[in-house]
């Protein structure tokens, strides 16, 4: 039960698959930082983070969504982000159903999109409108 380890500093948890593009991660974290909310990046090997959800072991949207949900569950702020190996990303909240992320972006997203991912996560934490 590490999800709410009260010792850790409150942060948005970012789960990244090995090989996730560095610049995607950088912009996402920048988006949250600009809003004043810290992030904690955790590399999660393989695709096993979808384990709560056995049916969704394929790559793509399902994986990144499940990964983001797991990240949210391990955040004291209840908010998580995931970035997969090809740069798709999702934002999730620990109390939302696993299959309903707050937002997702595809691999063909822009710098502005990635920033928005980080900003959205931060704004959930701050209780501010997401857009």
């Amino acid at each position: 039960m590490t999800h709410s380890d009260p010792g850790s500093r409150p942060a948005v948890v970012v789960h990244v698959r090995p090989g996730a593009p560095e610049r995607v991660l950088r912009e996402i974290c920048a988006g949250a930082e600009e809003e004043g909310v810290p992030t904690r990046v955790v590399t999660v090997p393989g695709r096993s983070a979808g384990e709560q959800d056995g049916s969704m072991r394929s790559t793509g949207e399902h994986d990144v969504t499940a990964l983001a949900h797991a990240a949210a569950a391990s955040s004291r702020l209840d908010v998580g982000i995931a970035v997969d190996a090809v740069g798709a990303a999702a934002v999730h909240h620990g109390k939302l159903p696993a299959q309903r992320p707050v937002t997702t972006v595809e691999t063909d997203a822009t710098v502005a999109d990635w920033r928005r991912v980080g900003r959205t996560a931060a704004r959930i934490v701050k209780g501010l409108p997401l857009s």
Binding site: R9, P10, V125, K126, G127, L128
Partner: peptide, 15 residues
């Protein structure tokens, strides 16, 4: 238990 919202809407967190 961990944050306040100032009257101008900004949020402040406490460790």
């Amino acid at each position: 238990f961990f944050h306040v919202r100032h009257e101008d809407g900004t949020v402040q967190f406490f460790d």
